[in-house]
Design a protein around this nucleic acid. Structure first.
Lengths: 347, 347
DNA sequence: AATAAAAATTAACGCGCGTAAAGTTTTTAT
DNA sequence: ATAAAAACTTTACGCGCGTTAATTTTTATT
């Protein structure tokens, strides 16, 4: 006979307390913070825990605690591996800090984003990490939500919303890629969607124009049609169009983001246009984000990488500070992390 | 003055009932099933609902209901867009049926899978949709979990575990791709990981050998090294190795799954090997899954597509049946959906 | 209008746990 | 050894809602 785990089914804390020989209030205290009880009693409780496999009913717990240990994580589009990666990090950090993360994806739809925030309220989370959809977000809905729940925005900034924002410094992305391409060849054209879903896209375009001006080159922005979150296909179609019309003024293209670039490279391949920094190539393509698949495009994609780890780490840190601070900061802060240029074959 | 939403803050159902002029038990009944009360009272409640924006405390509700309206969705690896897509469908179906889905990713780690199942128990979900890690899953942990929570397995089958399994028919995948490649050129070699994480991989290899035998060709299985879930990189490294050693016996390769194929194509591109069905190509590569990015590889990937929609739809249907049936089926069923061949440029 | 059936009301208990107050025991410090 | 502090036990109430039983009101039927 090994251990008795699961053999005896314990109904509630009362029963477990009796079996462990400790009073219920003390057991309750233990579950709230194991270090708040005497080491000897802690040992006795944990011994009983080994034998009887009991865990407090979280519904009863959360009903009575003023603050739950729940944390909501909301991302705009989980089918994008970029967000899946960030979400993984955020989840782990929350768990490590003793919280219980709940992950949601808006799947690119405003209606869903609103519904998620609505549902999140009844979860009474201690805090929420929100990467909003961006342009199509319902600002007033998010504002109302933030007024009720301590919220830290990440990835996409929305003016004044949330207690803080953590993201990447779009200027750093674009300046590095533009400078690199200029230094090693022709200055790039900028390839983007006409109506980008994400505010980062606008900042990147502005940064591109700025940097080109500063370097004394004329900016050339190529805006392609398409809406939604199927960026690869939008990029591919857009690239086929401009390649067909020979609208490119230079042999260098900087894509607003990697998913567009993936489509762009697919289009080039279809058209038999060689992309890369070698002499026999007709075009150089760089991009921004360092998407998990950027290493496997053909050719592999030169891109400016997000500081994933720092953005994620700082986001949870900030949220925990916010929670400890009672859900309010004196003033809203914005933290931006610079990019890291990743040189591969495409430029 | 528009509506008063949010102006008055209601503490509990007692208070809301008073304000709406209906007794609390009736209001409670309404929230359990709006059709269970008289249309006139329903109207009065919903009228009050518009004015006061009250919603029952889910913790108090779940504590007292024998069955919650929660549903757990667990996938092995959310950074794989394939699972993100399925998860989206599953989530939507659950919501449409009045349930509240909670999404979790095991991120390729057994420890995490176990922790998720552990945490899920205290959520007391009405049911769980589980796509297990596969080979590295802790079978006994999953078995224990299934004994306590109504669970439907999908994507990866584990012998006898869960009340039912819904997945794809691996034989259908491989037979279609092999037959197509054979019909239009040389019979393919089979490219896979030596120790695949997923049981589907084993079934695909067996199917390959079967089909080749049946067609009168000698099977040729190429097993590459590598562990974990970074399939693209594993595929790339493996491809570089066999291409370097010229181990290919034919000009046709069938990859076990699309993520390996993405790596394979990247390796071919690096080596300057032209892939495709055209005359000037040295190699044809096909695969299985129809990964969301398969359309954007260079060249685009010929592959056998999962019947996403049916697998997802049947999974939730089955889970709802299971829940209505009290959490037990007389016998475990396995439902397999056939693949659909998607012809693109790579083969 | 009388009567049966359906629906709502009132009253009350229970769920499992947080938490506070008052008293008791154990530990630590002097 | 003794006092003070810390930790524990007992007792008791409250959280917001599900649920049941007995009663009253409303609706449908004849």
């Amino acid at each position: 006979m090994g251990r008795q785990t699961g053999m005896t089914k314990i109904k509630n804390m009362e029963e477990f307390a009796a079996l462990s020989g400790i009073s219920r209030p003390t057991v309750s205290k233990y579950f709230h913070d194991p270090d708040s009880v005497r080491p000897t009693t802690r040992a006795r409780i944990e011994e009983a825990l080994e034998r009887f496999d009991y865990r407090p009913n979280i519904y009863a717990v959360n009903q009575n605690r003023k603050l739950t240990k729940n944390i909501g994580i909301v991302v705009p589009y989980l089918a994008d591996p970029f967000f899946a990666e960030i979400a993984r990090y955020l989840e782990q950090s929350c768990i490590a800090a003793g919280y219980r993360p709940f992950l949601f994806s808006s799947h690119g739809e405003q209606k869903l984003e609103n519904e998620i925030l609505d549902g999140l309220q009844s979860l009474k989370p201690a805090g929420v990490l929100l990467a909003p959809l961006g342009r199509i977000s319902d600002k007033s809905a998010i504002e109302k939500f933030c007024a009720r729940v301590p919220t830290v925005l990440f990835d996409s900034n929305l003016d004044g919303l949330g207690a803080a924002f953590i993201g990447s410094d779009n200027f750093s992305f674009v300046s590095q890629t533009v400078e690199y391409m200029t230094r090693t060849g022709e200055p790039p054209s900028f390839f983007e969607m006409r109506t980008p879903a994400n505010p980062n896209a606008n900042k990147r375009r502005k940064a591109y124009v700025d940097v080109m001006d500063r370097l004394g080159f004329e900016p050339h922005v190529i805006k392609i049609e398409g809406t939604g979150w199927a960026f690869e296909e939008i990029g591919r179609k857009g690239a086929l169009k401009i390649l067909g019309e020979r609208k490119l003024r230079t042999n260098s293209v900087l894509c607003s983001n990697d998913r567009l670039a993936i489509g762009f490279l697919a289009a080039c391949f279809e058209q038999g246009i060689r992309v890369g920094r070698k002499d026999d190539c007709a075009l150089r393509v760089a991009s921004n984000d360092d998407h998990p698949f950027a290493k496997f495009t053909c050719p592999s994609l030169t891109t400016a990488a997000h500081d994933y780890d720092n953005v994620a780490a700082r986001s949870v840190e900030t949220l925990f500070e916010l929670i400890e601070n009672g859900g309010k900061f004196e003033k809203r802060t914005e933290t931006l992390f610079p990019a890291r240029l990743v040189l591969r074959e495409s430029a």
